[in-house]
């Protein structure tokens, strides 16, 4: 009996020791942040949030205004011996992924991350929200808006649209799509779409948003019929969008930090590239009143920013 107790005691101490050394090893790990341009406010915010969420030793490279040849960057990175690298922005990711071999690399703040080549050791936080998120908020904020129109090019967004249609049904919304093959079709497409829908959902589509003119046409035609536009980027607010839902920048930094912690502590990472965990909602309350849209007051607490004039 005494022997058994001794064996159990030995194994427990051994397990505790192993766990403690793993944590200690985690703490002594080195992280390198490579920022595409720290003078860009959103990159600076994400950088700050990432750094403040971690207790590891952190090194930084700011690529702002600098040209790094692959060799220079390789030398600089290897001189710092990082256990993990965090690349903020496409420039940092493209250059870093080309020169590193074994270290885990986390990316964030890259528009359409699928365009980039990912390695086995690549992890990331996408910039694009899951379609469920905006659809849920449309339904929650505007209980009377049940038919939403989307302009999309089948070449780039057919798959996205099919998925969005299914998700929309889950929240009681009918999605009406109008396919576009070239930007010249926008006016005609809106003529068909606008009478059928209560709102337009502007998505990141290279044909629908071909240039400033296409964008102006969409906003002008929707405004003429008092149909609200919901968009994916805060920039559309100045063109007259009623609502924008975008990824929340500070949350992305904290999320990437959590991933870094998991990787360094050798914990399982379920999704190598995750959608952003936080969203930032801006609502133009003046336009809501102007268009006579019924709003769910209880849902207003989901809004981060409001525009009144």
């Amino acid at each position: 009996m005494r022997n058994w107790i001794l064996i159990i005691c030995f194994y427990s101490s051994f397990a505790a020791f192993t766990a403690a050394s793993a944590t200690a090893a985690g703490m002594s790990s080195r992280i390198l942040i490579i920022n595409s341009d720290k003078s860009v406010s959103k990159y600076a915010i994400i950088h700050r949030e990432f750094k403040s969420a971690l207790k590891f030793k952190i090194f930084e490279i700011n690529m702002q205004g600098k040209t790094f040849t692959p060799n220079m960057l390789k030398q600089r990175v290897s001189s710092l011996h990082p256990d993990l690298i965090y690349a903020i922005g496409s420039k940092a990711y493209i250059q870093t992924s080309a020169v590193i071999k074994n270290q885990p690399l986390i990316f964030s703040s890259m528009i359409n991350w699928r365009r980039f080549r990912l390695n086995n050791n690549t992890y990331g936080v996408a910039l694009e929200l899951q379609v469920d998120m905006p659809l849920y908020l449309y339904s929650y904020l505007f209980p009377k808006i049940r038919r939403i129109g989307v302009l999309y090019s089948p070449r780039y967004n057919q798959q996205w649209f099919n998925n969005a249609m299914l998700q929309a049904q889950e929240v009681g919304i009918s999605l009406y799509g109008q396919a576009l093959n070239q930007p010249e079709e926008i006016s005609r497409a809106l003529k068909i779409l606008l009478p059928k829908v209560d709102a337009i959902w502007l998505i990141s589509d290279p044909i629908a948003l071909y240039d400033k003119n296409s964008m102006r046409t969409i906003f002008a035609k929707a405004a003429a019929r008092k149909k609200p536009i919901f968009a994916y980027n805060t920039l559309f607010m100045k063109y007259g969008a009623v609502l924008t839902i975008a990824a929340d920048i500070p949350t992305m930094g904290r999320q990437a930090a959590g991933m870094a912690e998991d990787i360094l502590n050798q914990e399982q990472v379920d999704e190598k590239v995750q959608p952003p965990a936080g969203s930032h909602v801006i609502l133009n309350l003046k336009k809501v009143h102007e268009y006579g849209i019924k709003i769910n007051h209880a849902a207003l607490s989901s809004v981060e920013e409001i525009i009144q004039e």
Partner: peptide, 21 residues
Amino acid sequence: FRILTVPKDVDALMSVLFGMA
């Protein structure tokens, strides 16, 4: 427990549904 601070409840909900938490 480890906390991931998100802006609002619906973000927390989506984080669970899509594996961020």
